[in-house]
């Protein structure tokens, strides 16, 4: 471990995760050579954006320690996450919390919602007695803008998705982790209520100093709360850097396609001409390294089929993995 890695909260280097394919000898890389880091000195929100199949949930599983990487390393405060001792593992489970897509899945339907909070208090010895536990729950429910009197004693089916997700955030907050991995936390919540959950995520960063990896397909919400962003396409990072720079002035053809496809809520800004659907390009069978966006890219060039583009600076804090920006 270098000093550099110890200074970082999270440092993922060349992460790859391969899966076997049914009836085939070749494996498929769901996450393919992804590197990024989160600073140790201040809390940030890193958005990991991509469509279904881009590998964002596989990445989340590796970061949470649910799935070992096939290649590459994840270092958390200098600890190698794939080779943790028993005490380190307990520490990691405390310091890194997950929030998932379906809040209804996270609760046992037979218990009132605070059961999940009591379990966490017990597991992480967060309170000395029942009174302390009750005040801890009260404080953290208020922190996520829930009224304890309207939440405690309710069963999961009696609360909305947005309310349950906020109980899950209260649970994570109570444990006081350094890092939260939030995998599509708002995608199942009614549109008008998403902003509340997003605002709470921003306050976890600003008021509680908790860094977050925000995994999402929704770039509008990523723009609202993220500091940094990784845009994934078929397991590779196509563009990364300052979230506002990447979303407001996308440089990679895939990011451009993604952002131009998002409907603008304004009847005066209608979609223009029909998007052309590019046909998959024929690849030389011997090539194993190529740009993964080649089959849909309107700017494809011969070299895109021959090697993989490296990340090239396209702005003060913006990298795009595309040959268009390579200086010859």
């Amino acid at each position: 471990m270098t000093n550099d890695q110890e200074r970082k909260l999270l440092d993922a280097r060349n992460l790859t995760r391969r899966f076997a394919q049914k009836g085939r000898r070749e494996t498929v890389a769901a996450v393919d050579d992804v590197s990024f880091s989160l600073p140790g000195e201040r809390a940030i929100i890193l958005a990991v954006a991509g469509e279904s199949g881009s590998g964002k949930s596989t990445l989340a599983s590796m970061l949470l320690g649910f799935l070992p990487p096939s290649e590459g390393t994840i270092a958390f405060s200098g600890m190698d996450v794939s080779h943790l001792t028993r005490t380190q593992r307990a520490q990691y489970r405390h310091m890194v919390q997950g929030i998932f897509q379906d809040p209804f899945d996270a609760f046992n339907p037979f218990y009132p919602v605070e059961h999940a909070l009591h379990l966490a208090i017990e597991k992480f010895s967060l309170a000395k007695n029942r009174q302390e536990a009750a005040s801890l729950i009260d404080k953290n429910l208020r922190a996520v803008r829930l009224k304890p009197e309207a939440t405690l004693g309710r069963y999961p089916h009696q609360l909305s998705g947005g309310q349950l997700q906020r109980v899950m955030i209260a649970r994570a907050l109570m444990i006081h982790p350094r890092l939260i991995i939030a995998d599509e936390p708002v995608s199942m919540i009614d549109a008008s209520l998403r902003a509340i959950v997003l605002e709470i995520m921003a306050s976890l960063r600003d008021e509680h100093g908790i860094s977050q990896v925000y995994i999402t397909h929704d770039l509008s919400s990523a723009l609202q709360i993220s500091d940094q962003i990784l845009v994934l396409y078929r397991g590779t990072v196509v563009e990364s850097g300052n979230a506002a720079a990447v979303i407001e002035t996308p440089k990679h053809p895939y990011t451009q396609l993604l952002i131009s496809s998002i409907p603008v809520p304004d009847p005066d800004e209608k979609w223009g001409a029909e998007l052309e659907e590019t046909q998959p390009a024929a690849l030389e069978p011997t090539q194993t390294e190529f740009c993964k966006f080649i089959d849909r890219c309107p700017h494809r060039m011969p070299m895109c089929a021959q090697r993989r583009p490296a990340a090239i600076p396209v702005g003060p804090d913006q990298l795009a993995a595309c040959f268009l920006y390579e200086k010859s």
Binding site: A195, I200, L223, Q224
Partner: peptide, 27 residues
């Protein structure tokens, strides 16, 4: 009004507190 007010923009960063306030009013 709330339905239209709570849509996050893809063009510019908004005041997330303001968006959330509209959402809470809606809730």
């Amino acid at each position: 009004q709330r339905l239209i007010g709570a849509i996050p923009s893809i063009r510019r960063r908004q005041d997330i507190g303001e968006l959330a306030r509209r959402g809470l009013e809606h809730a």
